[in-house]
Design a protein around this nucleic acid. Structure first.
Lengths: 370, 370
DNA sequence: CGTTTGGATGTAAACGATTACATGGACATC
DNA sequence: GATGTCCATGTAATCGTTTACATCCAAACG
């Protein structure tokens, strides 16, 4: 691999001149510049990134630490991150840690000196502390939806608002016994959704009932497995709000197998708006947390400070959610003016970004929260 | 940020000793080692990656260049790559270029000197040349399914075999007029699938008919949009094989809206086995190209040579595909012993990796090709 | 007791760039 | 013609490591 010295020798100039050519310095004579470029191309030379970032102490790279690459939600987040970073010519160093604090720590270690900023996506409650400790030495943005204000820049999904809107929607449809299938303990997203659900019940004057809150773990299997528990609750609920779509999907499938009609006998709703939801029968009513936007905005918060090599001010930004009303909640059963609309074909990818038609916009309005 | 010199001074040793401690050299006295570690922890020191890779000329990073991060298939590939790389403590530098050769070239430039090896995933026919030219200076594996043998290590999906198996399956179900919805021109995966389809028709003694080959672009919209064209073919086909699942999904949805029953009046099949397929009504018969495995094996091919800093021998490895028989092809309509089995609940994530039950295993056997 | 051996540690030269500062020549100014 | 200015270019220090080689000291050996 050719170095700057090879090019300098071959072009008959000093290494400083070659360096200047590759850094768009204006102080190089056009002919010299031309000549150097020609030689560089011939020698297949390109500045070595490691050497460059050693001396400039900037890497043009952003670290991204994830709990796991699995699942559509995270893959969309990454996509948002990648595209936003690319716009500013930043690269992405990926690292899928396992959500606990130790793994996070060692992942951050491995990234040290190779990134200008860090994005941490961790639903784990404990990880917030780790990130706070890093924040002094490296610009970092935490994508984390815990309720408390942390001593670092945080981007949160409006889980509470979304769950509130969803539960209100179920109440508005006439449901009085609304169950909730919770997410894993210690997951802040799950906890916030539960809080939103409870808030809506209180608001509607419905009694809180611990029996209505089923334990879950965000997996599809669990959504299917807890159907017997759901049906055993006395008196039987008429609706269940699942803390994420995967569980809702498992539940709808299992309910169908059990012979319970959805939504007539049991309304089921989810959270996340993953693509599969719109292909489910019945189509899944859910809350959209725009994963792409989440990634994009996280980069927007981080990048200016990463470039300036300054800590990101400890602010808390919230990404709003939107209620997406489809069939699984039974909204179509309640007579409304637009319930009979024929289903227009909607491709999953395109639709996810610009969904503004009648029924779902109505859902949005209904879901507006303060 | 503390450097090795700070630690050395504070611990009262030379920088060489500190370096040795962090490189598990056996030549350091236990007490010294202990002391250095203690000081390093106190100063929050960790070796700078850029400096390290400058001197060792190894980066412990792999570059990954993708046409676009979008879609479930690619996200699964990345997951396979990430997990396999992680096992060897390698990191992933992501770069989603736009499939053309120029973008690929500049993406590779930006990665120069920051990676030990490169994985290029490009279905574009022209990109193969670019990669060949890089292969001499950097270990690289191309994930590309073109028919020709290239002068670089290539990992290909057995598109031809998969399409052959699928078409044979439709023939075995009694179909005689089988249409194909093709992928975009210039996409090697699409072209190979078309070749496999044609081969199966020839093999079955069915006439080739250009009217049966519809142009497509791999998008769901296009699958829906070409339904009128499909229905206008005279005499009307009884089955259509779509070159990917997204198109098949669009088509199934649009056919249903048009009132054409699937699979009774029109059998529809796809390729890729994306998660949505199993939630479609009817469930989609497809060909599985295990994206996770693809990423995993690509890393397996690349990593040993990346570590040894040697070019990857120009070999062509093929990842086999598997026929996944579900309902959309009408197989359940044909009397078989297991057709009446109740549908067991299958979560998408788990099922994708260990699907060995009766019906689908049968599909695999039927799909076995030389 | 002198010599050898070998283990622990230190010294200094890389690695490949960037960039502050020095240099030198052309031109304008007085 | 001496001096100053400015532009293009060169020189050399620097970034934070790794590692070959040198050094030193204690133990082992004859």
């Amino acid at each position: 691999m050719a170095t700057i010295r090879d090019v300098a020798r071959e072009a008959g100039v000093s290494i400083a001149t070659v360096s200047r050519v590759f850094n768009q310095s204006a102080l190089v004579r056009p002919e010299t510049c031309e000549n150097v470029r020609e030689v560089a191309a011939r020698l297949d030379y390109w500045p070595n990134g490691a050497a460059r970032s050693l001396i400039t102490s900037r890497t043009l790279a952003l670290g991204v630490v994830l709990p796991d690459l699995h699942g559509e939600f995270f893959s969309e987040v990454i996509r948002g991150i990648d595209l936003a970073a690319r716009r500013e010519r930043f690269q992405i160093l990926l690292s899928s840690s396992h959500a606990d604090a130790d793994a996070l720590n060692s992942a951050v270690r491995a990234l040290r000196g190779r990134i200008d900023g860090l994005l941490v996506l961790s639903p784990d409650a404990g990880s917030a502390r780790v990130v706070e400790s890093i924040a002094s030495s490296l610009p970092v943005v935490l994508i984390h939806s815990g309720p408390d204000t942390l001593a670092c820049a945080t981007l949160a999904i409006a889980n509470h608002d979304g769950a509130l809107a969803m539960t209100r929607h179920l109440v508005a449809l006439g449901h009085r016994r609304i169950a909730m299938l919770c997410g894993p303990a210690g997951n802040v997203d799950a906890e916030e959704r539960l809080r939103g659900y409870r808030a809506a019940l209180t608001e509607a004057g419905l009694m809180q009932d611990a029996a209505l809150e089923l334990a879950g773990d965000f997996s599809e299997e669990c959504g299917a497995a807890c159907v017997p528990d759901l049906l055993a609750i006395e008196p039987r609920p008429t609706a269940i709000f699942c803390a994420n779509d995967a569980m809702a999907i498992g539940m709808v499938t299992a309910l169908r197998d059990t012979g319970v009609r959805v939504p007539e006998e049991m309304a089921v709703t989810g959270f996340d708006d993953i693509a599969i939801g719109r292909y489910l029968t019945p189509q899944l009513t859910t809350v959209r947390a725009d994963a792409y936007e989440l990634g994009e905005r996280a980069v927007g918060m981080l990048l200016p400070h990463a470039q300036a090599r300054q800590p990101v001010p400890a602010e808390r930004v919230s990404v709003p959610t939107r209620l997406i009303v489809r069939a699984s909640c039974g909204a179509a059963l309640v007579p409304t003016s637009d319930a009979a609309q024929p289903r227009r074909h909607r491709p999953l990818a395109a639709a996810a970004r610009r969904e503004e038609d009648g029924r779902e916009a109505a859902g949005r309005d209904r879901g507006r929260v303060s």
